[in-house]
Design a protein around this nucleic acid. Structure first.
Length: 156
DNA sequence: GCCAACGTTGGC
DNA sequence: GCCAACGTTGGC
């Protein structure tokens, strides 16, 4: 059993929010079409912690906690012609895109806004992809130290 | 809705 | 292998 790791996963709340995850319980994280993000999902283990981040919204930030519910498997939407995530270069023999299922843990008592996260940039470290300039990764690793700092902001 | 930053594609 | 064109992300 490897040690539990931590991640941050972005979703547009109009598309799929923490409330939606609470309603359904567990959800396949479909639609990631970025190789770096896919590679991070391949590294995920059951029980890894996930910060649920709302992007492209009034106040972008972390709004809930989730956990990885299974290891990576091929994203079915890549094979579905009707899906906006269809990828004609993917085959069932050689899938391009993988995903994990994510389970609801809890909502934060109040969200941690991106603005507030930025205030702690120094402690979080320059390499933290969430606040690094120009980085748009939708799935990214969070260290144990960063996880602790971020969750401490919930209490403020 | 704008646009900066970045990734991908495809012509050469 | 270069790089222009294009598409996407995501904050503002």
């Amino acid at each position: 059993m490897t040690r539990k790791r931590h991640w941050l996963m972005k979703s547009e709340p109009e598309d799929f929010s923490i409330d939606d995850l609470e309603r359904v319980g567990t959800e396949p994280w479909t639609g990631v079409r970025n190789y770096q993000a896919r590679n991070f999902m391949r590294q995920m283990q059951v029980g890894d912690g996930v910060l649920f981040y709302h992007s492209n919204t009034d106040v972008p930030g972390i709004y809930g906690l989730a956990e990885v519910a299974c290891t990576a498997y091929p994203d079915p939407t890549q094979f579905d012609r009707k899906s906006k995530y269809f990828d004609e270069k993917a085959t069932r023999e050689q899938p391009r895109w993988e995903l994990v299922d994510v389970s609801f843990v809890r909502k934060l008592s109040h969200g941690i806004a991106l603005d507030e996260i930025r205030l702690h940039a120094e402690r979080l470290g320059e390499e933290f992809a969430l606040i690094r300039k120009g980085t748009r990764l939708s799935v990214l690793p969070v260290t144990a130290a960063q996880w602790k700092i971020l969750l401490s902001l919930e209490k403020k």
